[in-house]
């Protein structure tokens, strides 16, 4: 099969690899880079489990042709933690029951991370709206919202007390 050399900026690292030019980013992440956090739950861009950040904007890696994203900074779920420290939403998720089977979780992590970056204090309705293209079959979403609100409260407390717990 015909392959081309492409360069991708993934989780802050420049990666060079030879892939078929039409290969979608999700498959490149999972098969060529061993970044299996992003999941494939559907085949028609309708479940959100594959979401990654492209220059900070959450997109669906299953319909992004990898070779077309060579000038974009890609962050996957594996790249969210800073220096190995989980983000507030990652911690809150465990405590408030955001994950059950966990298969949709990477997509939600990406969507929620982007939401909180953009707006640290979203309303319940904004949270619900923003997460409306991430499907979860386990939780019924209530504990996902609870996780987001818990993360928001913690982020707020931390920013009010910059020297406090890290």
């Amino acid at each position: 099969m015909h392959r081309e050399l492409i360069q991708l900026d993934i989780n802050g690292e420049r990666r060079e690899l030879a892939v078929p030019p039409q290969k979608v980013l999700l498959d490149v992440l999972r098969e060529d880079l061993g970044l299996t956090g992003s999941k494939r739950g559907c085949d028609d861009s309708s479940c959100g489990a594959c979401a990654v950040l492209a220059d900070g904007v959450p997109i669906l890696a299953c319909v992004a042709i990898a070779s077309c994203y060579q000038e974009t900074r890609i962050i996957t779920v594996e790249g969210l933690a800073v220096a190995g420290e989980p983000t507030p939403i990652q911690t809150a998720y465990g405590e408030a029951g955001g994950s059950q089977c966990g298969f949709c979780t990477p997509g939600f992590m990406i969507a929620i991370h982007a939401l909180l970056q953009h707006n640290p204090n979203p309303s319940d309705e904004e949270i619900r709206e923003t997460l409306s293209s991430n499907l979860c079959r386990c939780t019924g979403y209530m504990q996902i919202y609870e996780s987001v609100r818990l993360a928001m409260r913690r982020m707020e407390a931390r920013s009010a007390q910059p020297a406090a717990v890290r």
């Binding site: 959100g48 979401a51 959450p58 997109i59 969507a111 709206e129 923003t130 997460l131 409306s132 293209s133």
Partner: peptide
């Protein structure tokens, strides 16, 4: 149209 993720693309 669709949902937020699809609209981002």
């Amino acid at each position: 149209i669709a949902g937020p993720l699809q609209r981002n693309m």
